[in-house]
Write a protein that binds this DNA or RNA. Sequence first.
DNA 1: ATGAGCTATGTAAAGGTTTACATTGAGCAC
DNA 2: GTGCTCAATGTAAACCTTTACATAGCTCAT
Lengths: 340, 340
Amino acid sequence: MSNSTPATIEDVARIAEVSIATVSRAIHTPEKVANSTRLKVHQAIAITGYTTNAMARSLRLGRSNMILVVAPDIGDPNFSNILVGLENEARAHGYGILIGHTQNDAQRGLEYLKFLNSNQAAGLILFTGILPFGHQTMTARLPATVGVFEPIYNGGLPYVGVDDVAGARKLIDLLLAEGHRKIAFIGDSRTRLAYSRRRQGFEEGMDAANMRPENRIVIDGDGTIESGRLALEQLFMQDRLPTAFMCVNDQTAIGVMLGLTARGYNIPRDFSVTGFDDVPLSGFMSPPLTTIRQPRTAIGKRAMALLLDLLGDGVTPDGEILLMPDLVVRNSVGPPKGLR
Amino acid sequence: MSNSTPATIEDVARIAEVSIATVSRAIHTPEKVANSTRLKVHQAIAITGYTTNAMARSLRLGRSNMILVVAPDIGDPNFSNILVGLENEARAHGYGILIGHTQNDAQRGLEYLKFLNSNQAAGLILFTGILPFGHQTMTARLPATVGVFEPIYNGGLPYVGVDDVAGARKLIDLLLAEGHRKIAFIGDSRTRLAYSRRRQGFEEGMDAANMRPENRIVIDGDGTIESGRLALEQLFMQDRLPTAFMCVNDQTAIGVMLGLTARGYNIPRDFSVTGFDDVPLSGFMSPPLTTIRQPRTAIGKRAMALLLDLLGDGVTPDGEILLMPDLVVRNSVGPPKGLR
DNA sequence: ATGAGCTATGTAAAGGTTTACATTGAGCAC
DNA sequence: GTGCTCAATGTAAACCTTTACATAGCTCAT
């Protein structure tokens, strides 16, 4: 039973009094073996506690049953629920996932590339918009790959994300409906497509409400808490104050809120603030942050399903799958001061 | 160069004009091949872009180069930095990590057991105090295993954590030094050893200050935000109010703080609150939470190092490695109301 | 000059699986 | 009864690596 060395297919074959080929068939293509035989095999499997050696199987098949998930930062609060979605879906199809983080370090990226090339992963899920492998011509040898959140830099690879434009539009429409006219968009960035799409939603909303350019303040930022605080200081120094801050993500919004609170302002009485992503922290701010919730588990599930499809028939489906994010109304938004 | 099928050791051997055995030796035991030969082999490797097929290697060696990390919940804020430590250390030694979460579901636990038995992981890192595999006698076949945070239920397995007693002691000493005399310990639990050790630190500190039992309020909780809020309500209903709340972890403390704020109290003017763990959220509460910082990356690194040792010589080292956690003083603690 | 001792290399087996191909035998039509 | 078809099973090769053992050739002491 629970011996020192695990049972092999041969042990099972001996006990079931068949050949190893029949055992293998009984497991993977049961319709090809006689009922009576199949029964014997399964009994033998139960007796020995046999599980197929995945190493040997992968070697023989030339492909593993692992999916490599690469993210720039495992600690990103946006990450963990996606992972749950990815993992559940993978496991349901007999795959496991394997997680790596690059910390934007090309050296580490290369190690993952080696990992992929040594056949240890059948597929790749990429969290950043860029391939973490420098510009290796090796690209040709990449396995099936799916992006999450953003399309992958060199293009052609499918990805799953949310409709950032629509999400941003929901936020701007809310602010406009509350009566805000002068609105700042904090955290514009050309490096992340998701961010420029949020900016796009902002502009479209302002356009639709016939807001003139002087009512729109746009300021750069990289999406960290610090960047939000910094942007706020800049605006105060330049005396270009809006009545509402629409931030490119929750971190930025938190930075803005902390800055405003530190200056003694009350949210939402003096200023309104919105975020994007709904990271766990946002619900606990005071006031709780109005934001857009990413359907994280769904994104993960969808991305993995897409990858497994790709693995199955090798057909590349639509390059872009956008899920619809939900508006989460909390207390960081109110009418502008003048209207109160 | 970048062909459809990856280069094998045979391709390298052909180009270098040696046997595959020599190639293998040139890679793994370079001192055993002549300098000139080694050079030829490495050139051939460069030309072909060869990387060892990990499947074949693991099959031959009878052990993989993957470590399975199992946690009840990937999303746990305590998790991610540990992971960074684990991963860095593993990668530095040629291992990769593989992450699974059980969500306390025995069925899922069993799937991981199968995974282990199919030889896909050389070692196991366990985040919970319990083996997630029900009570399989299979336990005998577990690979090298190291626990994180807590000893593993059925004992005998080494683990790496922090000195919870000492950490709790730092907190209680701080509260006592501020002048608090009547202190509540929120979140006592017999299910998690870490928690009862924190309780123990609380008691030892109170003992050392000769505090009588009637000054100690102890109340149950499972460590969630909700449990903190609930405990607080109970205390208000029973009219057993302390001047300070020492909470078993940050989540609990956050629950208590939210409850106090909702009732209109000011922290730390009316009540002091402490946590334990220093999850990212804690620094952003208002007021920021005074707590104990877990050396998370260090724990991860240490646990992995321990596991790799175990894998190396099979010798089980000391069963318990406790790191010292640091006190993080923020603004949630002040003198009790009477003393102000 | 001979052989012992070494170093450098090669040969071949083994690890556990899947599967193309071969074999066996039963059912069935003539 | 003969031969065909088909289902069920078996045999053996292949996947790629590592390493015990064998071999070859050199150095050096005698």
